[in-house]
Write a protein that binds this DNA or RNA. Structure first.
Lengths: 297, 297
DNA sequence: AAGATTCATATCGATACGATATCAATAATA
DNA sequence: TATTATTGATATCGTATCGATATGAATCTT
């Protein structure tokens, strides 16, 4: 089966005239006749009833015409998909993201990306920042929205935004009535934190942040989702240090108190492999620069 | 886009090893490498990350793999369809049939045909015998179940069965109580007949049949469907001469009376073009011979 | 460090493909 | 009825494509 021959066949079947079909195909008539004959031999079927004055499809020709049209459509579609992929206009972008970006940054990124390049489809994976670095290295995702700088050697990181930290406290907590607080005042609090195993980098950052003001940070309860952490806070199990974006969640019985310290922020980064070969990824990085480039939030 | 190259690509993508893939493709390794490189150049995309020791799909390769598999499946399907068509195992058989065969002969033919060659699909058209001859000539149908002998020059006709004629009469009619009658006793009856325009041959046959016993046959009402004719008979509008098969219909207020005359029969024929090029048609003719070959009914 | 493995490159021959020239059949026209 | 125009088929030839063999280069194993 040969797609070129099928194209020739379809042209003749549509024109019902070898000369015009050859013209349409930008070729001479004799080789076209040859190819049709070869196709007929290959299929061991007569496709056209032809005299020197008339050309008509046989039943076999009718069947092949409909089949061939479908196959050629599919073939064109393959070419289009690959062309879209090459130009970065299509294809699938595999995006890892931290849960805390799932309420604002990630959806906005997706929305804007889709608006600019509608043919691109996304494969979304909820991953911790450290998992994203691993997944990027393993080529399981193409882009990550995470909080680590990544492995500088193999990955690039572009700052999306800086999020001030907030303290999530139960409404009944003494700090709940205050507009803000500082890290140093949190000594002795019962912390609920993001799972250290899943996000060692975030954990380490917080530990170092607290140790800078001589406060110990050792969450007694660890969870892998912010919703769980907030639920535990609302239930009075302790307090949690969370990025600003998490405030989208406003569970009853919970208050957010701003942490005033200048250093009390975490960054959200766009992570990509240095050696990636995807136009889609460059587009993503450009988009981030455009959307969030102005700086802090 | 070239299907052979895509097959090569899929083989390499599945083996992730040029040597093994080449073996699977019954070719040497170097030309395989060449073709892959040409495919990459054609698409302007790198499909494999390869060193001398390892071969891995790029994202572009993954996309193409899934696309190519689909396209090759479609291509195989086209070949199978055409092969089925050639062997007569598949394809579409366009069958014209007279309404009076729609209750017994046509369904039986279809059922048996489908049982033997399940891949064949049917396109059914309800046509009068004369319309069938025209449709055969115009290559609009491939087979016909009709009552004429057809145009002997261009069409073949195989007798399916002979049907004795019956007289459909209203229950109130004087003949309703008799088991049988003869054509000669029908002088003066008010006939309801099949449309002369639609079925001139059937009409002519009946006229000649009646004239042989010196009875005039000139239906006062003509209809194009037996159900209409029978409805009119049941309503007391007249009597109708119908083939035996029509007795499947037993509308209330109607009786069938056998016409005893030896000549009072019509034949049901299987019609085909003499120059047809369809195995399916031959199969149909053979099937008819097998099913109805024993002779009269 | 030597050998084995594996993919790439170079070269060659066979086949496929398209172009030109020409033939053959049919339809239109004088 | 004879001539011309139209149109598909055939013959021949040059080029491109494709696969095979021989060989090179890189990397892993021992």
């Amino acid at each position: 089966m040969n797609l070129r021959r099928l194209r020739y066949f379809v042209a003749v079947a549509e024109e019902l005239h070898f000369g015009r079909a050859a013209e349409r195909l930008h070729m001479a008539q004799p080789p076209l006749s040859q190819q049709i004959r070869l196709l007929e031999e290959e299929l061991a079927l007569t496709l056209f009833d032809r005299s020197t004055r008339s050309v008509a499809l046989t039943r076999a020709g009718e069947v092949l015409l409909s089949e061939a049209r479908g196959l050629l459509r599919s073939s064109d579609s393959v070419e289009r998909v690959m062309s879209d992929f090459r130009s970065g206009e299509g294809g699938t972008l595999r995006l890892g993201f931290v849960d805390s970006s799932a309420y604002e940054v990630m959806p906005r990124f997706l929305r804007e990306y889709r608006q600019r390049w509608p043919k691109v489809s996304f494969e979304l994976r909820s991953l911790s920042s450290d998992q994203q670095v691993a997944a990027l290295g393993a080529r399981e995702v193409d882009l990550g929205i995470g909080r680590t700088l990544g492995d500088g050697a193999r990955a690039t990181s572009t700052e999306i935004l800086r999020e001030q930290l907030y303290l999530a406290v139960p409404s009944s907590h003494q700090l709940a009535k205050q507009a803000s607080t500082t890290l140093s005042r949190l000594a002795g609090e019962n912390f609920i934190g993001f799972d250290q195993q899943v996000s060692p980098t975030l954990h380490a950052e917080l530990v170092s942040m607290f140790s800078a003001v001589a406060v110990g940070y050792a969450p007694t309860i660890q969870a892998t989702e912010y919703t769980s952490i907030l639920g535990l806070v609302a239930a009075g199990e302790g307090v949690a240090v969370v990025p600003a974006g998490v405030r989208t969640f406003q569970p009853p019985g919970l208050r957010y108190v701003r942490v005033r310290d200048k250093a009390a922020f975490v960054r959200l980064m766009m992570l990509a492999r240095k050696d990636h070969d995807l136009r889609l990824v460059d587009r993503g990085l450009e988009l981030v620069a455009e959307l969030f480039g102005s700086g802090a939030n």
